[in-house]
Simulated scan of single mutants.
Amino acid sequence: MIPALTLLGLLRPLHVCVGMTGHIGQVGVSVAKLGAGCLTGTRFLETFEILRPAQPSDMGGLRALAGQVLKLRLRAEPGIILRGLVVDDQAGGVIVDMSFGIAVVDAVQHFGLTARDFAPSDLAVELLFLQEAKSSAMAASFSLNSRLNGARLAAETEAMTDGLTGLHNRRALESAMARLGQSDTEYAVLNLDLDRFKQVNDTMGHAVGDAVLLRVATAMRAQTRQDDLLVRAGGDEFVIVCPGLDDRTRLNDLSASLIQAVSAPMQIDGQDVAVGASIGIAVSQSEARVDPETLIARADVALYAAKRSGRGQHVFWSPAMGQSLSELELPEATTQA
């Protein structure tokens, strides 16, 4: 027959046996993990603080609580609240069988407890399993959400990107222009078109043409600011949107640098390749604000004015040019500014 105290230790790992003098005679194996050192031989009421239903000051008061459920805590660990049932041991002492109640998750984390530190039939074990399952599920959900968000971001980025050059595409241009149209930010639109590109494509092949477009994209990145939006609008047509830039002198310098960089001789697959560039520029004006679509149309009109003026130059839009290609006239005053 297993001795009673041994059996108690096996079945109730969170128990404390208190003798008639109020000293602790035996503790369960899990009590020893609660960070209060060796409890055997210490006075129970000096080691534990009973919060309710009463606060006894001696062994008589503690025995009077027999059959009642206590709320108590270790004085060395006041942050963890315990529940305890007081049982009269019929020998002048008591047995206090404890649990952590709803604080079990905090206690497990704080003291490094495992399922073995609880009675096999304790509901705390099931709660721990549920908590672990919940944590695993949340981790899996977070991982899944991260993957989904990453995939969505990648898809959105791909949808806004030109597959050949890595620049933005027309969809990105429309989105950016819509935002600028709703803001008070001044900005400029530069419409850049390559000169003699069709001849390169026709005589040297599309592979060389694609390589030229990649070189042009690289040159555009090198000449523009980080905040500028670089767009391949289609074929050999590019658009640059410059938020916060409406100074004509700076736009003159930028356009001249772009034309020079794009027109620099290049060698592709052992072949000398030369293209040029023409640029039309339209600038937003706070005193005469127009919608983004109109500004892009004006930049397009200015581009064709540049091409009609001999190519390889940049032209600012002016009211004398009209609002569309069908209205375009080419007074001498509208050429390179």
Rank of each mutant, 00 (worst) to 15 (best):
R179I: 06
S318Y: 03
D202W: 03
T114W: 09
D106S: 12
W317A: 07
V283L: 13
V216L: 05
R43Q: 11
T203Q: 13
G25V: 05
G150V: 03
S284D: 08
L328I: 05
F44M: 09
A211R: 04
A233E: 04
T161R: 11
G84V: 07
H15W: 05
P319L: 08
Q182F: 08
R215D: 15
H168N: 10
H110Q: 02
T224E: 08
V29Q: 09
M98T: 15
K198Y: 13
A297K: 12
S286P: 01
G209C: 09
A302D: 08
M59H: 13
Q223L: 03
L254R: 03
C17E: 10
I259E: 06
R248P: 06
T6I: 07
L7H: 13
A305T: 08
A288G: 02
A66L: 08
G67V: 09
L65C: 07
N149V: 10
L74Y: 00
E77V: 15
T185E: 14
M98R: 04
E46H: 13
S141N: 10
V241M: 06
D89K: 06
F44T: 01
Q260S: 14
E132I: 07
M138Q: 09
L7A: 14
M98Y: 01
R52C: 13
T294Q: 11
R289E: 07
L128H: 01
V283M: 05
A261D: 03
E332V: 10
Q68T: 06
I268W: 00
V239E: 05
A154F: 02
F118D: 01
V105C: 05
A103S: 14
L45E: 00
P13A: 15
S146W: 09
R215G: 06
A103F: 14
R298Q: 14
V273F: 11
A219S: 15
A176W: 00
M177R: 01
T42C: 15
L192P: 00
L130Q: 10
A32E: 13
A137C: 06
F142R: 08
I2W: 00
T6S: 12
G181L: 12
L5F: 10
L85C: 05
D88R: 01
I296F: 11
Q199C: 11
G92H: 05
A261S: 12
I80E: 00
E158R: 13
L295Q: 10
A76G: 07
S121C: 06
I2L: 15
A140N: 06
G84D: 02
M204I: 02
G22C: 02
P120C: 09
V104R: 00
A337Q: 12
L148R: 03
I2G: 00
G19A: 15
S286V: 07
I2P: 02
R250D: 09
F44W: 01
D227K: 04
P265N: 04
V239I: 15
D88S: 05
E237S: 04
L192D: 01
G25F: 03
S286M: 08
